[in-house]
Design a protein around this nucleic acid. Structure first.
Lengths: 117, 117
DNA sequence: CGGTATCCCGGGCGATACTG
DNA sequence: CAGTATCGCCCGGGATACCG
């Protein structure tokens, strides 16, 4: 088998990059991962930090990320309730990619001159 | 100024990761970048390699990527016409990120056990 | 060969109100 | 405090036909 052979994509999902983007992409997953890389956060903390994100969307997004196995949800049986979200080991393994993407945007997007290559 | 201060996101666009995902994300940009990292390709070649992608969508996506400055379009004044697409220097600078994302999907998505962390 | 033009659909995303 | 329920919109993505 030729390792350099160009593959045929009968579906976008066959691309390994797409598989990863499906997990870290979408409108709100990037900022959430970026925040949780600094440490665990409560639901309300996330809401206050990203105030423009609707509660339902935050809740739904966190569930998706939990289902993907990149974050962990820990509920404390207290009154009032407290729920803490943190990255799983799988989520932590994204740190290098996230850091590189952050650096790439600083170097290639912020303050870029249109038409520049 | 505290470098470790947690930022407030009044918009998703303020996240540096989002800025990068906007350039490399979407349904078809990942496979196109992944292919062009192996070398330049003609329009028809891309179409044959990703046959499920509608021509209009391929055309539109390539234009967006050209506008973002990550690919270059070279038209040869021949009959029949020939157009070659290749990564710009800025596109090439994504290689490490793409490679890491490809490896990440191999290690964490393909053949993963549901529920595993 | 390498595209545009036109029309269209589904789902990601969201605003608001309510609840254990 | 930490969520659900309900309702709805926008737009990325797409099928088909046509053009230089």
């Amino acid at each position: 088998m030729d390792e350099k052979k160009i593959p045929n994509y009968h579906s976008a999902d066959e691309c390994p990059i797409t598989a990863t983007i499906d997990v870290i992409g979408g409108k709100w997953k990037p900022p959430i991962i970026w925040l949780l890389l600094k440490g665990p956060m409560r639901f309300g903390e996330l809401h206050k930090t990203i105030p423009t994100m609707a509660l339902k969307v935050l809740s739904r997004t966190l569930k998706e990320m939990e289902a993907d196995g990149i974050i962990k949800r820990k509920a404390f049986p207290e009154i009032p309730p407290r729920v803490e979200y943190s990255l799983s080991r799988k989520g932590e393994s994204l740190r290098q990619i996230m850091t590189l993407m952050s650096e790439w945007s600083r170097e290639h997007i912020i303050n870029q001159v249109p038409g520049e290559q």
